[in-house]
Design a protein around this nucleic acid. Structure first.
Lengths: 117, 117
DNA sequence: CTGAATCCCATAGGATACTG
DNA sequence: CAGTATCCTATGGGATTCAG
């Protein structure tokens, strides 16, 4: 399985020099990224759909997040030549391989202990 | 299970407003963090041991990483009143609960496709 | 040995406004 | 609708030096 890209983003490159877990974090770390993947595991989404489901993300940030995920081979972006424009985001095989991980991270974060008042 | 702390770091607080996976990333995201946890899952480490095993981390950064993990209830720091000083880092129950996740993220990062030359 | 102090820079990510 | 463009700030993280 390949990413479909020839050049890796520099954070991912640097992570590879250190440890496999760092590679995972270089690809998946950062705000909104795993939430977006979580929704895309559910089904294909349009840009506006993702924005609404994420709640408070700005279009600029969401664009960057999706572009990174695309560059890292997680997401595929499909543009339809229509008016008004329609762009759909879905997961690659590599993206779908995150199913288990996302499930566990979601469960772990959900069980994360809230401090007592 | 509680963190032992009363106040959460602000990134974690903000993540809680969004999604459980964001909580996980707020706690585990960032350079060196998961690598440190990975080694601590193996056994207790002294500061210098961790530094050497991580390879190129600076003491300043490693200190911040460990302090964050401590504040988030993942790591416990034990200071021995000796000369020269000895400080040992180990995992809390919450930290050990990351065993599976770290294993999976390590495997996923290891299998992450390198681009063809 | 285990940091703290200081300095520095790049990046992440929000706010706001605009466009094909 | 799906972004760009511009501006801004906070913070993450490295380099280097110093200290108990």
């Amino acid at each position: 399985m390949t990413t479909g890209t020839e050049t890796l983003r520099s954070p991912v490159q640097r992570a590879m020099e250190v440890c496999p877990v760092e590679v995972s974090m270089a690809v998946l770390g950062g705000a909104w990224k795993l939430s977006a993947v979580k929704y895309l595991l559910e089904r294909t989404h349009r840009f506006g759909e993702l924005q609404r489901r994420l709640g408070t993300v700005t279009p600029r940030t969401l664009t960057r997040v999706l572009r990174d995920l695309e560059a890292d081979g997680i997401v595929v972006r499909t543009v339809y030549a229509e008016v008004p424009p329609r762009v759909e985001y879905s997961l690659t095989d590599l993206g779908r391989s995150l199913d288990q991980v996302v499930g566990w991270l979601n469960a772990w974060g959900d069980a994360y202990p809230r401090p007592v008042d």
